[in-house]
Each structure stands twice: as C-alpha cells, then as structure tokens.
Simulated assay, not measured.
Amino acid sequence: MSAKDRINGEFEVPAELSDRRLDQAVAELMPDHSRSRIQGWIKAGDLTVNGEARKPRDKVMLGDIITVNAEPEVQVTWEAESIELDIVYEDEHVLVINKPAGLVVHPAAGHAAGTLVNALLHHAPEVDKLPRAGIVHRLDKDTSGLMVVARSLIAHTSLVDQLQTRTMGREYDAVMVGTITGGGVVDAPIGRHPTQRKKMAVVRDGKPAVTHYRLVERFPAHTHVRCKLESGRTHQIRVHMAHIRHALVGDPVYGGRMQLPKGCTPELKEVLRQFHRQALHARQLTLVHPATDEEMTWEAPLPADMLELLEALRAHARAQESL
C-alpha cells in the first residue's frame, strides 16, 4: 500500500474538546470513523499527540497536535437485494424511508444480508458511491419510523452538517413504564456501559446528549410521550428514559423484567407479553432540502403493534375507572 492510500491528517485540539479522552476527541474530529477503529490506531501507534504515543483514555489539552497516519478500513462489498421499502418521499438527492421494526440498517456480523443498506443498493444503486451507502443517521433494529438517506454527495454533506449542527428535527413516540405529570428534559452524557460493553449508559465522560419529552397520554401505570432529540447518541431515548426510571415498554436491553400494572386485564397482559421490542417510533422528521433549501417535514403514523398497545392501555384505564 502506497503512502497516498493511507489515512493522513493533522488536527489541533480546539477549546471545546480540551480535557476530553483522546479517543473521544478524535471521534468528534473524524466522525466518519468508528471509536473502535480510532482506538486501534492509537494502540498501534498510528495516531500520536505532539509526536508521542498515547493511550485512548489519556486526556488531550487545548492546542495539542493530533497526527494520524493509518491504513484505511477494508471496504466490504455489500450486495443489492430486492427488499420492499416503505418510501415516504424521494428525489434525486434524498430518500425518506418509513423503516419497520425488525429491519437492521447496516450489514454486520450476524446480519450480512436482508438489511436496509441491501435494499437501498437495489432501489438506488448510486448510494454505493457514498459513505455508508448514504446512511447519515440510524434507527435501532427494533425501532420503527422515519429515516433520511442521501442519494448524492451534495445531500450527504448537507445532511451530515444538519445533524452535527442539530438543525435536523426528529420527534419520536414512546410508551414508558410508570407515570409522569408533565414533560421535561434529560441532559445527561451517554457512553459505553462501564462493564456491559453491548449497552450504553449515562456516564460522566460520555458524549453530550439532550432529550426533550412531553406528555401525550397518561395511563394507570404507563405514559405515552413524545421525545425530541438535540443529539443523536446510540440508544439515546432508551438510555435517557431508563435513567429517569421510566424505561420503554418492551425494551429487552434497558427495561428489566416486565411489570404488570395493578388490576391488569387479561387483554393487556397478553399484549405486554407479546410486545418484544422497545415501544419507540420515529414519527416526524424535519430538514432543509440539500438542493432547494426548502424546509420539509414528514410524518409516519404509529405502526399496528404500538396502536394495539395503546388501545389495550386505554381499555385497562377504563376498567380501572369503573371499579
């Protein structure tokens, strides 16, 4: 491999990243590369600070010079597959998808095929020329709702910028365990769980994360809320709601054991037992079109499983009121 084929870069640490972990700071400076990949560069000595090798957890300071000279990640060839997509909007620059629960976004170990990316390569082959096949933000496998995909380099650049500057509006419907009296804000940094590496958690040295939530409908032991994101951290709403002791219904990772409300009807008990995914749906997406500068908004109605859950909760509430 020639020198020109390697990843080369030099960055001066800005004030806002001073006193952050080295791997976290580089992840902010080089958002197209994963944290694990960056940690690999640091450990291999391919990423230095002021010309010296460091550890991923070492802190960087204002004015430090970070230098990268590393081999690029091996590009995996993803196959196009004829998978039906629920397309809400499309033009030559953007594609807005209503993703069903259960659909994985990116091919990965254990999910090499049958993903949203495989479907996109079949429907819009041009995304193969874009970073991550045009995917600029993700939804968890079992979260349903709206996603925007870039179909052109202009769109990719614009959408990434809108996400980073927090000008892209994303609103979610969620059903949480427990009741609240009103809305609120969770402002708590999120990072990898200190002992369970497949989980995220609120941690002191995590990335800044802010979730706004408001009350939609309250039931005897559950609450339907709408959440708006200022940031887009992995599992953000799920982690934040669990952090305030209101984990989402059905969440297999952050929800703990299923809780049945007092006087639970047989119908509600059955619905709760059969609800095997987090009750989370990306209902609304607002962005500025990359080519026209027009502000555009799309909405996706609640899927059948969440409608059934809400109706069962309403029926239980009516039964409780009649006692």
Score class of each variant (00 low, 15 high):
D142Y: 10
V127Q: 06
R138C: 02
P56M: 10
I83P: 10
V136K: 14
H106L: 14
V76Q: 11
V68D: 00
A109P: 13
M61Y: 15
S152W: 09
V127D: 07
K43Q: 13
L153T: 08
K43P: 02
T167G: 02
T165F: 00
I65F: 04
E126G: 09
V127M: 05
K43T: 13
L47S: 02
A53E: 03
P107W: 05
P107Y: 06
L163F: 12
L153C: 00
R170A: 14
V149A: 06
I87M: 03
A108P: 06
D161W: 01
A119G: 13
L159E: 05
S34V: 11
N69A: 12
W41F: 12
V148W: 13
Q164D: 11
L103A: 05
S34T: 10
T157Q: 15
A101K: 13
E73T: 10
T67Y: 01
R54W: 03
V74D: 12
A53K: 15
W78R: 01
L120S: 12
A124W: 12
R170F: 08
R151F: 04
V160T: 14
A113R: 15
G114M: 05
G40E: 08
M168I: 15
K59V: 00
T67H: 04
M61P: 00
M61T: 11
A80P: 15
T67L: 04
T67D: 03
K129R: 13
E73M: 07
P56R: 03
A44F: 01
L159R: 06
I83C: 11
P125R: 01
E84V: 09
L121T: 09
V148T: 09
V127G: 08
G102Y: 05
E126I: 09
R138G: 06
L139D: 11
V49R: 08
V136Y: 00
Q164C: 01
S82G: 02
Q164R: 15
S144V: 02
V76A: 13
L85I: 05
L163N: 06
L121W: 04
